[in-house]
Design a protein around this nucleic acid. Sequence first.
RNA 1: GUGGGUGUAGCUCAAUUGGUUAGAGUGCCGGGUUGUGGCCCCGGAGGUUGAGGGUUCAAUUCCCUUCACUCACCCCA
Length: 427
Amino acid sequence: METISAIRGFKDILPAEAGQWLFVEEQARRVFHAFGFRDIRIPILEKTELFARGIGESTDIVEKEMYTFTDRGDESLTLRPEATASILRAYIEHALYATDPVARLYTIGPMFRRERPQKGRYRQFYQIDAEILGLDDPRVDAELILMLTHFLKAVGLTNPHVEINSLGCPVCRPGFRSAVVAHLQGREEELCGDCRRRIDTNPLRVFDCKIESCRAAVEHAPRLADFLCDACRVHFGTVQESLGLFCVPFSINDRMVRGLDYYTRTTFEVTTDVLGAQNAVVGGGRYDGLVQQLGGPDIPGIGFAIGFERLVSLMPRVAEDFRRTPALFIAALGAEAQKIAFELANRLRLNNVEVEMDYAGKSLKSQMKRADKLGCRYALIIGDREIAEKSGVFRDLRNSTQTPVGLDLASITGKMEALQRGVEDLV
RNA sequence: GUGGGUGUAGCUCAAUUGGUUAGAGUGCCGGGUUGUGGCCCCGGAGGUUGAGGGUUCAAUUCCCUUCACUCACCCCA
């Protein structure tokens, strides 16, 4: 039979790696819960129109990177490229704003992009996503960033650095935008094809272009900071003050415009000293008009998305550090011992003790080998002698010492606990 | 979507100008110890050399096609 492999750009997270992933998720949930966030589970498939409207028609995501297909009902569906649009859809659809004016929501799960896979960039990738809806207070922006950096430190990132910017609001951004367009229109021949097109579609994106001539062309372009209206200026100031209160290290990057259309006011990215400044682990920002744009009431929002794989790759503790090892291996010799081992192993498991045993009737040597390979701290050896004496051999594989132990749950768990406390057993 | 690189054992890799039974390390299984792991020693299993076609007396090696993986570009939610 021909074997079947995973499809292009999709990848298995095997147990050897999954322990590290679990750790990251646990830390996220712990920290986020403390900050009042609640888990929300949203579908991974949505109507294409949701993303077209939510993310912006002229973004690269919507233009060419979405995992879109037509289902049998002739409806265009898309595997979600990000979580924000889906969360807002659910928020609006269930009128969560009617229950509580403030919603803090997070979700952890797979996102999809239809790109050619490369290093660390698969078609299915994972994000940790958090959104706050119903608050436009700038202190909330700072609070969200504080939570984010706190989480990043919890998983061991040494030097998370936050870059922030303000993109203005519908009052002041149009002025900036037209100033940028005016600036660019005089320099069209210096721009690459994409950027020339962007003048009409998404002029601010030109700031993100890596091509040298484009960078030069925007070198003396108008500065966003000079166009912010009073309200936005005050807002941005309070964000900075609030971050300072908790000594969150940040810098202002007024060229950071982010790839999505919906952002307003505060935007931010997190980089680390491991990757250099060009690769962000987290991107986020405020999107005060988005809920309304998706057909909901005029409710402000702010959120971020953490790239899971990238975060994992930046952690100082590697996958091996999160290996799960059974606490006890039960080695049995002979049919009678196997019976006892089987019952003991599963009764211990029912009591939440991680136990492994051999079912194949292998030699004691090979069972001990396996116990060692699995990283078991203790082994319980049961053979005819032990059955006759009603007392098993309890071996500490780390110290290579062994003592007798009763063949009952209480004796075994008591022995393990005593040894873990470092108490020498008296028997 | 564009360009480069690579496909040989579960994994990491060898194999002379094309040459006869395709090797090593590691992992796996077993033995060296009548019932004791790690270190060491010995043995064993495990391959359609990605697939298909071509050239040749002979192809892992050369050519073509295809698929996969991979790196980079583009872009990055």
